[in-house]
Amino acid sequence: MRANVNSPGYVLVFTAALAVVFTAGITALQVATAPRVRRNEALREERALVSVFGLGDAGRMSPSEVAATVRLRVERAPAVRDPATGRAFDLFHAHAPGAEGAVEAVAFRFAGTGFWARISGLMALTPDLAKVTGMVILEQAETPGLGGRITEAEWLAKFKGITVSPPAEGAKFIYIGGGAPSSPQDPRWGRYVDAITGATQTSLAMGRFLDENLRQFHRAMRAATLGQVRETASSTTTTRPTTTTREGQD
């Protein structure tokens, strides 16, 4: 009844058939779950937006509440690009409820290298980009219990209200760790967040790349605003090509 299981033909056919059957099964499952996986990813970003803009307790809200809140209050704006480095930043606007609600806050996606691996998240700012209104971490692989605590609400809450407007020359946008400033003359005044105990390297890394991200983001926003102004100008008058760019301060 059985073919010679050792003949090369049988071996080939058997192996091929086994591969086809199992691969087909897996492919079918993959295709069947793809919409759900996409929904999960979208929901993750929506939850992050709800929590960074402080629109509700994202952890307790149902997926449909989260989606509805984001649809009502948040708008994805065109990405802005830093002219100096070419880096693009995802940009989101939070609106007051209502059809033509004013922009209440803007958020951008930051990213950088932590102690072990890439860290990314969203930072929400007041519309004038001067103060932080919220922050969430989207991805990180820092040491659990130490650097991993950057995702904890207590630490992220410390960013609320700190100043991140362009600083004086030579100073940074934001400072993490190294002792709280004691006088308003200190350039770190109003821009300081405590480091996480036991996670010095993660805290230093975050201080470094958040400063860099904020610098680039401010430059990108200024370039976007200038671009808009230029567009309106060139549509009304014929302007000669501008060659001067303002980046001296950075």
């Binding site: 071996v11 058997f14 192996t15 499952l29 779950t33 996986v37």
Partner: peptide, 27 residues
């Protein structure tokens, strides 16, 4: 299962079941 490729066959079977787990977890 032909004896000479039995380990290949086993790995294929194992991989298939494990990837199922992976897909279900992701979803």
């Amino acid at each position: 299962i032909p004896p000479r490729v039995r380990m290949i066959a086993q790995v294929l079977i194992i991989a298939a079941y494990v990837i199922v787990v992976d897909i279900v977890f992701r979803a």
